[in-house]
Write a protein that binds this DNA or RNA. Structure first.
Length: 1012
RNA sequence: GCCCAGGUGGCGGAACUGGUAUACGCAACAGACUUAAAAUCUGUCGCCCGCAAGGGAUUGAGGGUUCGAUUCCCUCCCUGGGCACCA
């Protein structure tokens, strides 16, 4: 008998599988006996210099075992692999050693491929992909352009997360605990021009889709929390602003100062104590905006305390005023046209002329920082898209409303009046507490601080606070131990719309600019944070909710004995409901008090009513748009050209891919520009539209771009015409099982779902959701229970195990360690247990085979029963991916029958079952037994339910629920027979002696319980 | 603070819808083989009392439902993960 030489056997079979192309998945295959397709996916690796590690092995083996099993069941299985090869390590290596990333990447891929093959994984190599291959990233760029064309890829300047070590911007998802996901540096804030993908537009769809997925709850919940939906109300609080004295109304081109809403508006504003000016403008018909602007400057009192309302063409004039350097407090644009093309089909020469002259929006924003844009959803003349253009150029929100009359021309337009009064919009999930709002807080970044500069008496102090807050990192600002800080905006008061009372306005960094409206109504009696702040600064606290009188331990707030404890916890039952409908940070529902006509209502009832009364119901998400540009070299170039004249121009599809040019220096500049910016002959191009000189976008895409659609490419890896043929997609997608790590839940998995949902909406993808089932795996920890890491020196290299014990042992041990979804600790000593088992299988098979009679041998009843039990157990465990217990059952089987002679057929069946786990040894032994083809081509064994059944049953005898004995009875015996048998037992009789049996509980073939 | 997952021998872990808790493996101990060791094979092996037969307690803690609870319910503790001044 040969020794079990795992190294030799494994190489032999790996070569065999490759040559016979056993694992190639054929598109549309419907050959005889083949069932449905199965698309089994694992996260493709980043080929790093260190090679693949245990973290890769675990999901890959799981996917492999499952794939081999499913193929044998007759499924057409696709189990593909590729390389996610863009990324920083290769680039950093290039910086250090001057080796081009593509060179080191190719080398690393070669090594990783060698490793994967040595593990005996049944990947279909004919579908191998590489994200850094121009033929691949061509389509990554192409998809980006689809986002761009749909308006979901946009450029904006904003405060973004910046990693000072990697010298690049980061997405929100890449910041973990205020640190860079990749290198652990503390993330800074930096104002930069960036590309964004509008993932927020898909927030609701991403949430909805989750419901349809067969994913573990913990994964779904994590995505849900990340998207962070809360329903609440937006409420305007009026701001009294003593410095604004004067309103100037500029009417549209075909009207006069007496027309439209002007007389009514004048009356309203005068009643509020303002001075109004409204001129009849020169040049009717097709007026000239510059001429009108000069006329206004000459005839109106204009200064930094003036608000200008421009209706229609009047808005154009207002913008011209600003461009001329006129400083104004605020400009309200009402249905102001931009394009010159009107909805009634007419071209307005005056507007076209003004647009052609060009507005310098830099100058305009310099002159005034406070704009309101009002657009009518029912405007028959000026299109909403004009408003959107202004919104983009001025970087302010667009207010879309239904005007009372067409084009805001009715005699009264209340929305216009409302826009005239400065106000502060807040978002709250608890509008029912509005009567308790005793002050307001804005985030340090809130523009209202600049806008009300002239009205803020302590502006210097405020400014100092704002500057300090902006300098602090996210970690410092959101640190929990930190005491609340803030400064009152003196001279500014807000009006609580519920009580009519004037309340102070503060700036404080506990209010975040990134969420909601960046401003809150503070209800210190019912919000922990507001309470803390109010205590510190001595602000009034007013209780408006009475909690259900409940004996639960309320948390008494020290020093607040006068008021009923504001944070008294209410009824517990409401807590879980709250997450369902409305999320609440710190407060529970109760009965309203001190709340005018709402007093006595329950919170649940009051919330929608009060939201409608004082504002409107809205939805907020924590999800932010995806910062999609990186200031680094080794990534997909963003296929955009910047032209002075035509603006942002997408690279025409025929010019894709935009290839990475060779560079000498890979160092990131750190200034927020990519190293590509220095390659002038690459940067300078002709504008595809006007053919004038233009410049390429030099930012590249983030790591996650290539992996956001790679599973689609596997279905059609070589296609030159399209990213993935729709027929092939339709056959293969969605992915049936996706093995991978928990760490990708709010990164890769979220991004991929977003891309897929978008492409689905574009009609480019056939499956709405990309991954039907997700199987996350636990981390493989080192023997000491810590994470494996080089610095700890506790890393187990899979290559070493392959060398010493063999790939089959490595695979099986990895699976045997524990449940696939839980973290497990590697144990060097444990590995030998599996190797011993395989050794025994080797010896046992050889010895059985030596038995000359094996050909004619018939199995005993016991062997048959044990075998069929094994088939049942392994099949069921594999379906549920319970690999560890399946392996245990092989050992049990072996322990039970190792002394018995077994038939050839039984050994073969055993090897067939073992094949997915330990394919090399199974193939070798099967061949030794005379098998002519790969076990992969055998049908998966089926068990006979009749043979699984035991003839005799061991029934446990309990007395009062305690085990007192055991009886052997024929399977299926009735209660009386078992009871009689049980009473014969000494131990049982002893317990019962002298006491009558009150009751008997009998579970067939399992247990009899005598109650005395 | 909130949300998930989990807590079972010396260790990794089993236990189906409430029905023999500790399968399987590791480690440990004893024996066989050997000049010896390793390897291999055979056996023992959760804890306490007992020579034994047998008995008792036991699945993080406490309580409850039940003939019977690792499993269901309540309260609490601990570990891991996620979110976090998100209004």
């Amino acid at each position: 008998m040969n020794k079990y030489d795992s190294g030799k056997i494994e190489k032999k079979w790996q070569k065999y599988w490759q040559q016979k192309k056993i694992f190639q998945a054929k598109d549309f295959s419907k050959s005889a006996g083949q069932q449905t397709k199965k698309y089994v996916l694992v996260e493709f690796p980043y080929p790093s210099g260190e090679g693949l590690h245990m973290g890769h092995l675990r999901p890959y083996v799981a996917g492999d075992v499952y794939s081999r099993f499913k193929r044998m069941q007759g499924h057409n299985v696709m189990y593909p692999i590729g390389w996610d090869a863009f990324g920083l390590p290769a680039e950093n290596f290039a910086i250090k050693h001057g080796v081009h990333p593509s060179v080191s990447t190719a080398k690393n891929i070669k090594n990783a491929k060698r490793q994967i093959q040595s593990w005996g994984l049944s990947f279909d190599w004919s579908r191998e992909i590489n994200t850094t291959d121009p033929n691949y990233y061509k389509w990554t760029q192409w998809i980006f352009l689809q986002f761009f064309k749909a308006g979901l890829a946009y450029e904006a300047t904003g405060m973004i997360n910046w990693c000072p070590k990697d010298k690049t911007g980061l997405a929100n998802e890449e910041v973990i605990d205020g640190k860079c996901e990749r290198c652990g540096s503390i993330v800074e804030k930096k104002e930069l021009r960036q590309w964004y993908l509008k993932i927020t537009a898909y927030a609701e769809k991403l949430l909805e889709g989750l419901k349809t997925l067969d994913w573990p709850d913990r994964v779904k919940v994590q995505q849900e929390n990340w998207i962070g939906k809360s329903i609440g109300a937006e409420i305007d609080f009026a701001i009294s602003q003593p410095r604004v004295r004067r309103f100037v109304i500029l009417h549209g081109r075909a009207s006069t100062s007496k027309d439209n809403f002007y007389p009514w508006l004048k009356k309203e504003l005068e009643a509020s104590g303002f001075e109004i000016q409204a001129l009849d403008m020169p040049g009717k018909g097709e007026p000239d905006d510059l001429e009108q602007a000069k006329f206004v400057m000459k005839n109106c009192m204009l200064d930094e305390n003036t608000v200008v309302i421009g209706h229609s063409f009047g808005g154009v004039v207002a913008l011209r005023l600003l461009e001329q350097g006129m400083k104004l407090n605020k400009v309200i644009l009402v249905a102001t046209p931009f394009s010159g093309k009107f909805l009634d089909g007419k071209q307005r020469v005056s507007v076209s002329k003004a647009v052609q002259k060009g507005f310098d929006f830099g100058k305009i924003k310099n002159s005034c920082q406070n704009f309101t844009l009002l657009y009518g959803t029912n405007d028959p003349v000026v299109p909403l898209s004009d408003g959107e253009e202004f919104s983009r150029l001025l970087n302010v929100n667009l207010t879309k409303i239904q005007s009372s009359g067409p084009h805001f021309q009715s005699k009264e337009e209340p929305e216009v009046f409302k826009a005239c009064l400065p106000s502060l919009k807040v978002f709250t999930t608890r509008p029912d507490t509005i009567f308790g709002a005793t002050y307001m807080v804005v985030a340090p970044e809130h523009p209202i601080i600049r806008n009300l500069e002239s009205g803020i008496r302590n502006y210097e102090e405020v400014q100092k606070y704002v500057e300090k807050a902006k300098k602090e990192s996210e970690i410092q600002r959101t640190s929990l131990e930190k005491e609340k800080t803030g400064v009152e905006l003196k001279g500014i008061k807000a009006v609580n719309p519920a009580t009519g009372e004037e309340i102070p306005v503060w700036v404080a960094d506990y209010v975040l600019w990134g969420y909601g409206t960046g401003a809150i109504m503070a209800v210190p009696a019912h919000d922990g944070r507001d309470f803390e702040f109010a205590k510190k600064f001595g602000l009034p606290i007013k209780s408006v909710i009475e909690y259900n009188p409940s004996p639960h331990k309320g948390r008494e707030i020290p020093g607040n004995t006068a008021e009923p404890s504001p944070l008294m916890r209410g009824d517990v039952a409401s807590a879980s409901e709250a997450t369902e409908r409305l999320q609440s940070a710190a407060i529970d529902y109760g009965i309203l008090i001190n709340s005018g006509k709402f007093t006595g209502m329950k919170s649940e009832e009051a919330i929608p009513k009060m939201a409608a009364e004082f504002g409107k119901l809205t939805v907020q998400y924590k999800l932010r748009d995806w910062v999609f540009s990186r200031q680094r070299y080794w990534g997909e170039p963003i296929p955009i050209i910047h032209c002075e004249k035509c603006g942002i121009v997408p690279v025409p599809e025929k010019d894709l891919p935009v290839k990475l040019p060779p560079v000498k220096k890979y160092e990131p500049t750190g200034t927020g520009e990519s190293p590509l910016a220095a390659i002038s002959n690459w940067v300078n191009v002709k504008c595809p539209e006007c053919k004038e000189p233009a410049k390429r976008e030099t930012n590249t895409m983030p790591q996650w771009a290539g992996s956001s659609w790679y599973w689609l490419r596997y279905t059609d890896p070589g296609d030159k015409k399209i990213f993935a043929d729709k027929k092939k997609q339709k056959y293969w997608t969605p992915v049936d099982v996706y093995f991978g790590g928990m760490e990708h839940t709010t990164l890769h998995l979220l991004y991929s779902r977003f891309w897929n949902l978008f492409l689905y909406d574009q009609g480019l993808v056939t499956a709405k959701e990309p991954f039907a089932q997700r199987k996350p795996h636990g981390i493989v920890l080192a023997a000491d229970g810590e994470k494996m890491s080089k610095s700890r020196g506790n890393v187990v290299n899979p290559d070493d195990i392959v060398k010493s014990q063999g790939a089959d042992t490595l695979r099986m041990y990895e699976m045997f360690l524990g449940p696939h979804e839980l973290s497990v600790s590697w144990n060097d000593q444990g590995v030998v247990g599996i190797r011993r088992f395989l050794d025994r299988v080797w010896v046992w098979t050889n010895e059985q085979f030596k038995n000359k009679k094996i050909e004619r041998l018939k199995d005993s009843e016991k062997v048959e029963r044990v075998l069929h039990k094994l088939i049942k157990k392994v099949t069921e465990d594999l379906e549920e991916q319970r690999f560890n217990t399946a392996i245990a059952s092989f050992m049990e089987f072996h322990n039970e029958i190792k002394q018995e002679p077994v038939s050839l057929k039984t050994i073969k069946t055993f090897l067939t079952l073992l094949y997915p786990f330990a394919p090399h040894i199974a193939e070798e032994l099967n061949q030794m037994l005379g098998g002519k083809k790969s076990l992969q081509l055998e049908a998966w064994p089926k068990y006979d339910p009749a043979k699984v059944v035991e003839q005799t049953a061991e029934v446990v005898v309990q007395v009062n629920g305690r085990v007192r004995g055991k009886v052997s009875v024929p399977a299926g015996s009735g209660e009386d027979a078992v009871k009689a048998e049980a009473l014969k037992q000494d131990a049982v009789a002893k317990q019962i002696a002298g006491i009558g049996i009150k009751r008997v509980i009998y579970v067939k073939d399992k247990l009899i319980n005598l109650v005395i």
